[in-house]
């Protein structure tokens, strides 16, 4: 087994999917000859040819719209938005068509497509290159929103997304693309969708996160452990549909919960989880739930990025606040 980065794991999963299923195609801006601006599609053009690894014109609505047309016509398109900030132009297609095709035709047609989007802040990128849009997509019926936090999970979840019979928005945290390596076996095994992953077991507090904030959350759990506090860390992984049962079960054991996301606070996935805990887990809670989020502001240009993103310190502060209650 090789030690690889998250972006290499994405590449490995794409190659595996193209190899195993001739209906899989990859399309997007610069995904062919250039191998993608992050090199997520590097080498695929040479192995699978320009008919299946498609450099499209610079047109986001086209990319998503044609992926819908391909999926309805029984291909398995994996389309790339070069950055999530450019994906907003195609929400019409995702919301009005991808998420509705199966329902609109009462199962006659379906839309098995994946829309990959690099996202998240922390790489000193220009404007529109640091968005965290998972809550926007999670509000759309009929789709899945998946957000891996490690190379192994990226490989397994991307294969699952490609094989899923319904549309999936697959968010890839750019900050983690090359942050660390992990052993990933190219065994073609998909990881389950629609479930949370428990990354670390603990009895004192539940820390819930996903995507790019997971390493910070694990670091906070390490710091808590040094103080003798056992934090359970959950990676939501599929933010839509949300595995609320797993979070409720964890909080039923720990009684305390902090939810961590780098997306703006209002109507965030953190809000959704907090609401679920209030509705169905209130009597198990020993303290108020805390959300650690970005602020409700525009993602700043790089000089203020570190002030915008929540980090280990803010997670620890919230955790201690929750632990000190009652």
């Amino acid at each position: 087994m090789a030690q690889i980065t998250l972006v290499e794991a994405v590449n490995l999963a794409l190659a595996r999917a193209l190899q195993d299923d001739e209906s899989v195609v990859v399309l997007g801006e610069d995904v062919g000859t250039d191998g993608g601006v992050f090199r997520a599609t590097q080498g695929l053009l040479g192995r699978f040819g320009p008919e299946r690894v498609i450099d499209t014109p610079l047109a986001e609505a086209l990319i998503t719209g044609m992926a819908i047309g391909m999926a309805v016509e029984k291909l398995r398109p994996v389309a790339e938005m070069q950055f999530a900030g450019f994906g907003y132009a195609t929400i019409d297609q995702i919301l009005n068509h991808a998420g509705r095709m199966r329902h609109r035709t009462q199962g006659r047609l379906s839309c098995p497509m994946v829309l990959r989007m690099p996202c998240g802040a922390g790489i000193h990128a220009p404007e529109h290159h640091s968005e965290s849009p998972e809550a926007i997509y999670a509000h759309i019926p009929g789709i899945r929103v998946v957000y891996p936090s490690s190379p192994r999970r990226a490989y397994g979840l991307l294969l699952a997304a490609i094989r899923d019979p319904d549309p999936v928005v697959f968010l890839e945290p750019t900050r983690l693309y090359r942050l660390f390596k992990e052993e990933v076996s190219d065994d073609g095994q998909a990881a389950p969708l629609d479930v949370c992953y428990t990354l670390r077991e603990g009895t004192d507090i539940t820390l819930v996160s996903w995507g790019g904030m997971v390493p910070e959350t694990l670091a906070a759990a390490d710091a808590l452990a040094e103080e003798g506090i056992a934090a359970e860390v959950m990676d939501v992984a599929t933010v839509k549909p949300l595995d609320m049962d797993a979070i409720l079960a964890s909080v039923a054991r720990t009684g305390r919960c902090v939810i961590v996301t780098e997306a703006p606070r209002t109507c965030s996935i953190a809000s959704e989880i907090a609401a679920g805990l209030a509705e169905d887990g209130l009597l198990t809670l020993l303290a108020p739930v805390r959300r650690v989020t970005a602020y409700d502001v525009v993602v700043p240009l790089p000089r203020l990025e570190q002030h915008y993103m929540p980090g280990k310190a803010r997670i620890l502060e919230a955790a201690k606040n929750v632990l000190a209650f009652g």
């Binding site: 609505a61 047309g69 016509e73 029984k74 291909l75 068509h97």
Partner: peptide, 15 residues
Amino acid sequence: AHVTHAVGAAYAMRL
């Protein structure tokens, strides 16, 4: 919107 879907459908047929 269906103009882009048509492009994808036609691409699949030709592929």
